[in-house]
Amino acid sequence: MHYSGFKVIKEALTGHRGWGPAWRDATPKAQYDYVIIGGGGHGLATAYYLAKEFKQARIAVLEKGWIGGGNVGRNTTIIRSNYLLDGNEPFYEFSLKLWEGLEQDLNYNAMVSQRGILNLIHSDAQRDAFIRRGNAMILNGADAELLSTAQIVERYPFLNVNNARFPIKGGLAQHRGGTVRHDAVAWGYARAADRRGVDIIQNCEVTGFRIENGTCKGVETSRGFIGAGKVASCVAGSSSRLMEKAGMRLPIESHVLQA
Results as ranks from 00 to 15, higher is better:
E253Y: 10
T179Y: 09
T149N: 02
G15W: 07
M1G: 13
C216T: 15
K97L: 02
G171H: 12
I211L: 01
R155N: 07
Q56D: 00
R24T: 15
P21T: 12
N109T: 10
D124H: 14
G69C: 11
L147Y: 02
D128A: 15
I226S: 00
I131A: 08
A45K: 06
R165Q: 10
R17S: 08
L257I: 14
M248A: 08
D105L: 15
A228D: 07
R241Q: 15
H175R: 14
M1Y: 04
A173Y: 12
S113V: 08
H42D: 00
I200A: 08
L102K: 14
H255C: 01
A12G: 06
L102C: 14
W99S: 02
H42I: 14
F166M: 09
A51Q: 11
V61W: 13
L120I: 12
L146N: 09
V61Q: 11
H182L: 07
E89S: 14
A164Y: 09
K217M: 09
V256N: 08
F91Y: 15
V61H: 09
W99V: 03
S239V: 00
A51I: 10
D86G: 14
R165M: 05
R24W: 02
I252W: 04
A142W: 08
F158M: 14
G247F: 04
R223W: 00
I121E: 02
L172P: 09
R24D: 11
K64G: 00
G70H: 15
H2R: 10
T77Q: 14
V235A: 04
G227L: 07
A236R: 11
G87I: 06
G188Y: 13
Y49E: 05
Q174A: 11
D128I: 10
F54E: 04
E89N: 15
A192D: 06
P167I: 04
I168S: 07
S4I: 01
K169E: 03
Q114P: 04
Q202K: 13
C216S: 05
D194Y: 13
K245C: 05
V180C: 12
E93I: 12
F91Q: 09
P251N: 10
G214R: 14
H175G: 01
S81G: 12
V112Q: 03
A164L: 11
A47L: 03
Y189F: 15
V61L: 09
A129R: 14
G5E: 04
F166V: 04
G41E: 10
H255N: 09
W187L: 15
W187N: 08
G224Y: 12
W99Q: 05
C234L: 08
L98E: 14
K55W: 03
G40W: 09
A184C: 05
I201N: 01
Y156D: 01
D183M: 08
A184D: 08
R115L: 05
M111L: 11
E253N: 11
C204H: 06
M1R: 13
S123P: 06
G116I: 03
I59E: 01
E11Q: 13
A51N: 09
F54P: 00
G18C: 01
R195D: 07
N160D: 15
G141V: 06
G237E: 02
H122M: 02
S148V: 08
E154G: 03
P251K: 15
W99R: 13
A125T: 15
L50Y: 11
W19M: 03
Q258K: 15
A30N: 12
A142N: 15
M248W: 02
A136P: 07
A144K: 13
S95W: 10
L257A: 11
